[in-house]
Amino acid sequence: MSAEPIGPYRRRRVSALGLWSFEDWRVKVYGLTLHGSAPPSALVDQGREIARERLSRASREDLRRHGLAVLIVHEGENGDYVLVEWWSDNDILRHHNYGAPKGHGGRFVHQWPGPAACIWELAIVEFERAAWIRHVLEPAGGPDVAAYLDARLDAFV
């Protein structure tokens, strides 16, 4: 165990920041923050640029992708994080994590291999997993992509 004490759990705000489309991607955008209701818009814009680059690359490299993605922009206590996730091959969630210390000036580092997600980011991933199963994999009449895209988490986690 680390010499640092393990601190108390403090809930953070998850805000559904809408649906973003570019190329043939539809992206559910989430903000996650300890302070306020959403990360600063400049940070969200940086997250979108990172996602645009990563998903454009995925368009060329991942031939089994579904064109449905999740972007998590996390204004953390000690740094800022951008998670780019997309559904592929029916039941696989591809994951790329970017991080930067506070005061980074937009210089994010691709953390691969590296950390997957923190406990707050995992709450969004858990919600998205359940929504994918409920709306895409389970319906007897076939996938309901519109219902999946409409399912959004907006809560303290």
Rank of each mutant, 00 (worst) to 15 (best):
2 S>L: 15
2 S>C: 13
3 A>V: 12
3 A>G: 13
5 P>I: 05
5 P>V: 05
6 I>N: 11
7 G>D: 15
8 P>K: 06
13 R>K: 13
16 A>P: 03
17 L>F: 05
18 G>Q: 09
20 W>T: 11
21 S>Q: 11
22 F>E: 00
22 F>I: 00
22 F>Y: 05
22 F>K: 00
22 F>H: 03
25 W>S: 06
27 V>M: 10
29 V>A: 15
33 T>E: 13
34 L>I: 13
36 G>I: 12
36 G>W: 15
37 S>N: 14
38 A>F: 07
40 P>I: 11
40 P>Q: 10
41 S>H: 15
42 A>R: 09
42 A>N: 05
43 L>D: 00
43 L>N: 00
44 V>A: 14
45 D>W: 06
46 Q>M: 14
47 G>S: 09
47 G>I: 05
48 R>Q: 08
49 E>T: 03
50 I>F: 07
51 A>Q: 09
51 A>K: 08
53 E>S: 03
53 E>D: 11
55 L>G: 00
56 S>M: 03
57 R>S: 04
58 A>G: 03
59 S>Y: 02
59 S>F: 01
59 S>R: 06
60 R>F: 14
60 R>H: 11
62 D>E: 15
62 D>F: 01
62 D>I: 13
62 D>S: 12
64 R>P: 04
64 R>W: 02
64 R>S: 12
65 R>S: 12
65 R>T: 04
66 H>K: 15
68 L>P: 03
68 L>S: 00
72 I>P: 14
74 H>D: 12
75 E>R: 00
76 G>R: 01
76 G>P: 02
77 E>I: 12
78 N>S: 13
80 D>E: 11
81 Y>H: 06
82 V>C: 04
85 E>K: 06
85 E>C: 15
86 W>D: 08
88 S>Q: 02
88 S>A: 12
88 S>L: 10
89 D>Y: 09
91 D>K: 10
93 L>N: 08
94 R>I: 13
96 H>S: 08
99 G>Q: 07
100 A>E: 06
101 P>A: 12
101 P>C: 10
102 K>H: 11
106 G>P: 01
107 R>P: 01
108 F>E: 12
110 H>Q: 12
112 W>G: 02
113 P>H: 08
115 P>H: 05
116 A>C: 13
117 A>F: 01
118 C>K: 05
119 I>N: 04
121 E>I: 07
122 L>V: 11
122 L>E: 02
125 V>Y: 10
128 E>N: 01
128 E>L: 07
129 R>H: 06
130 A>F: 12
130 A>N: 12
131 A>E: 10
131 A>F: 04
132 W>M: 01
132 W>E: 05
133 I>T: 10
133 I>L: 12
134 R>A: 07
135 H>L: 05
135 H>S: 02
136 V>P: 06
136 V>F: 03
137 L>Q: 13
137 L>C: 09
138 E>Y: 04
139 P>Q: 09
139 P>R: 02
140 A>R: 14
141 G>A: 09
143 P>Y: 01
144 D>H: 11
145 V>D: 11
146 A>H: 08
147 A>E: 15
147 A>M: 06
148 Y>A: 11
150 D>E: 14
150 D>F: 04
150 D>G: 12
151 A>D: 14
153 L>D: 08
155 A>R: 14
155 A>Q: 04
156 F>T: 01
